[in-house]
Design a protein around this nucleic acid. Sequence first.
DNA 1: CGCGTGATTCTCT
DNA 2: GAGAATCACGCGG
Length: 213
Amino acid sequence: MIAPPDATPLPRHFFDRPVLEVAPDLLGRVLVRTTPDGPIRVRLTEVEAYDGPNDPGSHAYRGHTARNDVMFGPPGHVYVYFTYGMWFCMNLVCGPEGNPSAVLLRAGEIVEGAELARKRRLSARNDKELAKGPARLATALDVTRELNGTDACAAGDTPLRILTGTPVPADQVRNGPRTGVSGDGAVQPWRYWVANDPTVSPYRAHAPRRRSS
DNA sequence: CGCGTGATTCTCT
DNA sequence: GAGAATCACGCGG
C-alpha cells in the first residue's frame, strides 16, 4: 500500500538547496511531533530564512559556537535555541553541510492533536493562537533543547519530523521584512507567509529593551 | 486595537 | 554586563 502524502517525510535533498528556495517551499508542509499522549500535527503558515555566514541577522554571523553548532551540520536537522530567558524556537537547517543556513518556523495551523497543544498553551484564546509565533509554536509542540539536532527527515517513530503535506501555490505566498531582527539584518524581506491565513503572527519591528536600573 | 513594559536566563563580548 | 530570531498583560482610545 502506498503511503499518503501526509505520511511521507520530506527527503534530505529538499533541504540541500539555497535557503531562499527552501523557505517559501516549506509553507503548507506538515510538522509532526510524536508525544507519549499522541501526535500533534502542524501545517506551516509562516517561516523566516537565515542565509549563511554573511547574514547579519543570523546566529551564525559571528562564527561557529556551541549554541549554533547544529546550523553547521547536515541539512534537514532541527536547530533549537533558547531566547529571552524563557522561550524556545526551532529551525530547519538548509544548504550543504558546513554552510550555516536555516529556516525559523514561525507559525502554523494545528491540524491534529489540538487538545494536546492546548494543555501547554493555556493563555491561547482560540485555536488560531496555539502556534501563532515561533515560541508559541515550540511551546504547543513541546519542543525544547532536548530536540536540538533531531533529524527531521528520518523515517519511523522519531520525536519530530517534517512531512510532504500540500505545498502552497506560489501565488498565495507573501513575503516581507523579518520580525524581531535587529540591525542590518532586519531589512531583508525573508519572512514568508500564506496570504490571508489567520494563524500567521502579526508583524512587530524589533524593539530594543532599556536597562531597568 | 495599538502601544509599552516586565519576565527570566543564556550567550557571547 | 548587555542584549536577545518573544510573549502576556495592562492601559488608553
